[in-house]
Design a protein around this nucleic acid. Structure first.
Lengths: 154, 154
DNA sequence: GGCTTCCTACTCGGATAATTCGTGTCCGAGTTCGACAGG
DNA sequence: CCTGTCGAACTCGGACACGAATTATCCGAGTAGGAAGCC
């Protein structure tokens, strides 16, 4: 998985605490990461409709929907793409003992197994929302954490 | 996920039908893939102890255990490595609002969410064995398929 | 005919290049806020 | 004092290099089987 996913999820959680739009450079400074590269991830989130950008002075990024309506899977798919990790190349239809195409109405067993695992993974990520993560942060280190972030963001 | 995983799983299923050791070149010809590269995957499987190699004339690879004792997860981890897809870089301990290390006894919420999804994915792959896959192949296209493979392998 | 020896061919195993994807960076287009001049 | 205009700074957005991991390949080390020669 792309490493930028971690940054993107953390940014979404931080934006939960923000009042107005937050510039990408500010988010980068907060997390101590490359601002130029973080911009790319935020653009992906914007293209997916999870956040929207405000240009000009005092602009930045802000969440478009309620944090409870944004799942972690949404963020992961926005950054890493929605394509499954496993791609079936239809090995059974190649080589000297190739199966005829008409006998391949169902995906091959290997493909089915991988799809089931992928579905389980996606279901697990779909069950957690950004609001849940913010709640967990509060439960872990108290409500002061996100309040301090809100204050620091200005 | 590495593309060679597909080859490795298919090879394990094929080895289920084989009587004796099968050379890597034969497996590559059966699947119409690069023999030189498939050798690398098979070596990974051998290092993991899933298959063992027999050298010399009439040598090749053969399964070490009963196919019912080899899970798909075993094969995937042997080829792709056992490291989880997501790596937490402890973002919360960086930047101007870095959390003190003593407050980070638990993994951060993002990390926990990703670990849960990874566990679900692994559990799904662990629930399917190579014997199950062979059974599925038989259920899909009849018992003739694996018998033809056995005959072709010699 | 049986046994020993040698040899050939075949096998794996690790070390070695080419390529694609992820990582990191940069500069230009567009927009908003503030200042300034005029009425 | 109020208003319209201008300018400048700040923001995002996409286009451009670099590096690493994956993909693909090759040749050498080792071994089992078979053939030939000897007893």
């Amino acid at each position: 998985m792309s490493g930028g996913v971690e940054w993107a999820v953390h940014c979404c959680v931080v934006l939960t605490a923000a009042r107005g739009p937050v510039p990408a450079a500010r988010l980068a400074e907060l997390h101590d990461v490359s601002g130029s590269y973080l911009a790319k991830q935020l653009q992906s989130l914007a293209r997916a409709g999870l956040i929207h950008s405000v240009q000009g002075h005092a602009g930045g990024y802000a969440l478009t929907r309620d944090p409870a309506d944004i799942t972690v899977l949404d963020v992961v798919e926005a950054v890493d793409g929605a394509a499954p990790a496993f791609t079936c190349t239809e090995i059974r239809q190649r080589g000297p003992l190739a199966a005829p195409a008409e006998a391949c109405t169902l995906p091959c067993p290997v493909h089915r197994t991988m799809m089931a695992a992928d579905d389980a993974w996606r279901a697990s990520l779909r069950a957690v929302t950004i609001a849940d993560l913010a709640q967990m942060v509060t439960a872990d280190s108290g409500p002061s954490t996100l309040l301090t972030v809100r204050q620091w963001l200005g």
